[in-house]
């Protein structure tokens, strides 16, 4: 496992760049991750997605269904791909500091 510099901290990430220490996630970390995910600068819409994912994760320890995400944010999948070019699972979840979703996602 590698450590990389995010938001001024050394944070452990897995091999696809998902952070392994979710409790150390904060705004600056998210922005640095967004740079890697080609989602920088982050607009309000970016934050809406990230905050939703984050809150869901804190409650359920997992990523939400995409349908839930699109419904709660009001964005369709195409738009989410515009915000996060690598998509909701790899792009958005990474920026939101979630572990990588597994299983056909």
């Amino acid at each position: 496992m590698a450590k990389i510099l995010l938001g001024g901290m050394e944070i452990e990430v897995d091999e696809d760049g998902f952070i392994q220490e979710p409790e150390r996630w904060n705004k600056e970390v998210a922005e640095d991750l967004a740079k890697i995910e080609m989602a920088y600068p982050m607009s309000d819409d970016h934050w809406k997605v990230v905050n939703y994912l984050r809150n869901y994760y804190l409650e359920f320890e997992i990523a939400p269904p995409i349908r839930m995400l699109t419904k709660q944010t009001g964005f369709d999948l195409k738009y989410i791909y515009q915000l996060f070019p690598r998509g909701p699972a790899v792009g958005a979840c990474k920026v939101a500091g979630l572990p990588k979703p597994t299983g056909c996602v």
């Binding site: 091999e15 359920f60 320890e61 997992i62 839930m68 990588k100 979703p101 597994t102 299983g103």
Partner: peptide, 30 residues
């Protein structure tokens, strides 16, 4: 890598995506 992770999850939780019963029920409701 991810196939292995999926299987780890499957053998411990009964599904390949680290999903707990509460999440399942919440999703059903949704």
């Amino acid at each position: 890598l991810d196939m292995g992770r999926g299987v780890d999850s499957h053998l411990s939780l009964g599904n390949a995506s680290f999903m707990k019963e509460a999440v399942f029920k919440h999703t059903v409701k949704f």
